[in-house]
Amino acid sequence: MLIFSVFKTLTDQTVIVELKNDLLITGVLKSVDQFLNIRLDNIQVSDEARHPHMIAVKNCFIRGSVVRYVQIPADAVDTQLLEDATRREALNQTKR
């Protein structure tokens, strides 16, 4: 839930999604859901010469389960806020 919320705050930011097939896709984050499926706009696949498969694709839906990393702009996150929220969520988990 926490991570889902973080991604929601990153809407309209440019991110780089790295998939588990080593594909790197840069694009503008349009939406996320609870499975961390991602919608990207204005996408660009890195090393297009090697991966011409998606030249005519401008926006896409990425299944959360195939994501390895998402590189996010460092200035788009308040790390102090993140840590506090993480501690709070950890506390809620153990209280149950």
Binding site: L19, K20, N21, D22, L23, I25, I43, R50, H51, P52, H53, M54, I55, A56, V57, K58, N59, C60, F61, I62, R63, V66
Partner: peptide, 28 residues
């Protein structure tokens, strides 16, 4: 893995017979 919307104009203007590429790697 991914579903992308095809830009029809761009897709139709791409000559597939000119494209040589490795198949995409499988997810690991």
């Amino acid at each position: 893995v991914l579903i992308g919307e095809l830009d029809l104009e761009e897709d139709e203007s791409t000559d597939l017979s000119n494209i040589r590429a490795e198949p995409l790697p499988a997810i690991r």
